[in-house]
């Protein structure tokens, strides 16, 4: 019995040592030199492999950083400026400060705003629904609500809200990797510059139809009336194809455009509640 055990241990050990020797020589023979800084940079990256930087994964991005002569065009949206600073330090380069961004779904056509005019009954993805027809409502531009963005998000930053028909981005979790931007067949998602406390004033609509048509399809559609454009003191609002757009880089978050919008298509988020002005108060009292 004990002899069997000894033999077994001895045989296995010999095989093990032999294999180790072979592996040692093979690894010496086929050694490939790799810049050690690639590993170092990769160690600093978030390892999300989301592709938000435009490279196939964190390793590919690290390689690109090491090869690059400057970090101007390279940015890891997930790690943000902190990560890029560390990377810059490792590589001895200047880091370039990039704006933080957050995704925003430019459609507010929830079920109560946008009446359904037909019922879709097919494979439950936006991409297929969009290839079949324009959508369940009369608005051909708006959100279909089957959640291709939700499926594409690796960071749980999208709340599906299937009862409301339009998903919502959870700002704190969004890393602006851009996966949802590519996933949306209606091109509704925009990566906007992040403002302090995630405050934002956005036209939540992509409807380029004429005012009447847009309004009929959806209660909160932008009708291109240009009131907000006139109200804005900072030239942040432009109107093109019957649709207003607020440039996040120019917007000073004064919120003056919000109340002038006749359809309520401009929405403000993460602001403290407005103080009700005197004249409005009196109106309220009268009504």
């Amino acid at each position: 019995m004990s002899i069997t055990i000894i033999y077994t241990i001895a045989t296995l050990s010999i095989i093990g040592i032999f294999a180790a020797v072979v592996l040692y020589f093979v690894s010496r023979k086929f050694y490939v030199y790799e810049d050690p800084r690639i590993d170092e940079v990769e160690g600093q990256l978030p390892a999300a492999n989301c592709g938000g930087c435009g490279y196939a994964g964190c390793r590919a991005f690290a390689e690109a950083c090491v090869k690059a002569s400057g970090l101007d065009d390279l940015n890891c949206p997930v790690g943000g400026n902190d990560t890029m600073n560390t990377v810059a330090k490792i590589l001895g380069m200047e880091s370039v400060k990039k704006d933080l961004r957050t995704a925003f779904i430019r459609c507010n056509g929830t079920c109560d705003h946008r009446p359904k005019t037909s019922q879709y009954d097919g494979a439950s993805t936006c991409a297929i629904a969009a290839s079949v027809y324009s959508g369940e409502s009369d608005c051909q531009w708006g959100c279909l609500g089957y959640g291709d963005c939700f499926d594409s998000c690796d960071f749980d930053a999208i709340e599906l809200r299937s009862d409301m028909g339009v998903p919502k981005i959870i700002d704190d979790k969004c890393v602006a990797c851009g996966a949802c931007v590519d996933a949306c067949p209606k091109n509704l998602i925009e990566l906007r510059k992040q403002s302090p406390r995630n405050r934002k004033v956005v036209v939540a609509c992509m409807n380029k139809d004429k005012g009447g048509v847009a309004r009929k399809a959806c209660a909160v559609a932008c009708i291109g009336c240009t009131k907000c454009e006139k109200e804005c003191k900072f030239d942040a609002i432009t109107i093109e194809n019957n649709l207003a757009f607020i440039d996040a880089d120019k917007c000073k978050l004064c919120r003056k455009c919000v109340p002038v919008c006749p359809t309520g298509s401009i929405i403000e988020e993460n602001f403290p509640p407005r103080k009700i002005k005197v004249e409005e108060k009196s109106e309220l009292q009268n009504s």
């Binding site: 359904k116 005019t117 037909s118 019922q119 879709y120 009954d121 097919g122 494979a123 297929i128 079949v132 027809y133 369940e136």
Partner: peptide
């Protein structure tokens, strides 16, 4: 059930 027409791919 609502009176909307169903649209689905062939």
């Amino acid at each position: 059930m609502s009176n909307l027409f169903t649209v689905s791919p062939s």
